[in-house]
Design a protein around this nucleic acid. Sequence first.
DNA 1: ACCTTTATTCAATTTTTTTGAAATAATATC
DNA 2: GATATTATTTCAAAAAAATTGAATAAAGGT
Lengths: 302, 302
Amino acid sequence: MAHAVTLEALRVLEAIHKLGSFAAAAEALFKVPSALTYTVKKLEDDLGVPLFDRSRQRAVLTPAGHLVLEQGRAILDATIRLEDSIKQFESGWEPKLRIARDTVLLESPLMEVVGDFLVQNRPVELTLSEESVGGGWDALQDDRVDLVIGVTGELPKGNFYTRAIGELEFVFAVAPTHPLALVEGVVTAAQLRQYPAIVVADSSKKLPARNIGIFESRQVLRVETMRSKIQAQCLGLGVGYLPKHRIMDELNSGRLVTRQCEFPRPNITAYLAWRKDSPGRGLSWFVDCLSQQDWQLIPASV
Amino acid sequence: MAHAVTLEALRVLEAIHKLGSFAAAAEALFKVPSALTYTVKKLEDDLGVPLFDRSRQRAVLTPAGHLVLEQGRAILDATIRLEDSIKQFESGWEPKLRIARDTVLLESPLMEVVGDFLVQNRPVELTLSEESVGGGWDALQDDRVDLVIGVTGELPKGNFYTRAIGELEFVFAVAPTHPLALVEGVVTAAQLRQYPAIVVADSSKKLPARNIGIFESRQVLRVETMRSKIQAQCLGLGVGYLPKHRIMDELNSGRLVTRQCEFPRPNITAYLAWRKDSPGRGLSWFVDCLSQQDWQLIPASV
DNA sequence: ACCTTTATTCAATTTTTTTGAAATAATATC
DNA sequence: GATATTATTTCAAAAAAATTGAATAAAGGT
């Protein structure tokens, strides 16, 4: 047979697997069970492989069935994206917009902008996520998000637009109860090595992980978000550089104190970044608003 | 309408675009033109957008049509891959196997193995390609190849198997007519800077490009393959490190001479690498043969 | 053992797709 | 500029495919 696979058959497979039975799937698809029997059997005949094991009462996927299901899901997703693209093409508004914020940035400035967007009641479904270190680039490149806020470092390969939103200043901060708080003057490498370092793990799933500002400590505690890192350092669990704009409260109230460190950490520029290809009206709107938003950073020098 | 796109409609779209008319596409698909009119009109109705511009005699795609075609192709490709996967699942032999050779390696040892495979007349379609520097990893990660030979350096993220095939030794070589050939003793950084460096460009399309062994020359000539680099250096266009096993002939015949260099380049291990997931019989066969093949390298120490 | 749930078979029915002939329109040719 | 050619659409009829519902068989729960 020329073309065995049809989207309808993949949908049926998916439904049966998800709901656990032909009967339940039939109901969900507004059909009668024998219709599914027909569709499934046709696909099995065309493919030449049984997709379900019928030795028991409830049909369960064979290994071949799992294979078809898995790749079939990707195909169904692609058709949904295709239909979404057409909708965007007509209205200009993308049906879905995925925004990632790097964990170095505060959440509230983003939320303000999101609030402004939501009251406009556009036909756009928003998804927010948080990334760390190189993870923002990774998510963008891997097409898991459409827009990232607060990415830093080198531009990876690919066609991206960027816009600087300010400079990040890092200070070496410890809890006042931490032994390093007692050090007068500059903290040395030897002193650093005595205490655990708290680092934010790279959330990359595809690109190689970056390790920024790791000094060789005896112990490293890896956390997922900047919030966790700040909290860990406030509790005196370890030490490390923190973005100044995130810890103004902690510094003012004395929950953290700064020290000079032998290895200074230079300021780095934070960017908005998005894919070049055909931005929808939603993406354009967010790029405009987010680049004018006050992220409480140092204005970008260049 | 719930689900507008069907694979059949995408195939029709693709055929009309490729062959330039409804009539030609109909013939290719063993149908009658009015059947295509029906299919296309149905898709247009369901999507709510005209896909073809009919103001002229021959129908041409509208921008929206191009969008559907482009994404549709990806979907059709995925369905073909799905059917291929099933075939592999049944016979064990993958219908397609894509092998990349890093440009540091000789081509002939691979060709010998390929020859041995072809005489077995397996139902496997082979594709060979050449990659450079980080490009092998890139192609593997991006699923453009199934197996790479001669990748070096750090393992990127992802699930890969690797097997060492030997160590690469690099020698600093220049044409006998090159000014640096006259230097006695060790070539210094200052001397190096005087002459163009020949480097093999990273063929990566997704991962960040690696730059190995670039010393800051006034001029850099970037080439795509090791063969080009060797040739450029034989012609005295520039200098650089070359893999010793690739230039034995040139060294013996005096077309290249070696010199000591202030920056020595350590040996590096070359690997076979492939994706973990479900190797077919073809991939397994190649991994076995290729890892036993004599690549004329130094046996791996570790 | 009995009842319930589940999947399949099969003939009848409905829906969808395909066809071929005729109509319409745009290019090409003389 | 008239005419032939090529290309697409329209429409009713025919063919193919999908869906239904009733009957059947078999598995699991109580």
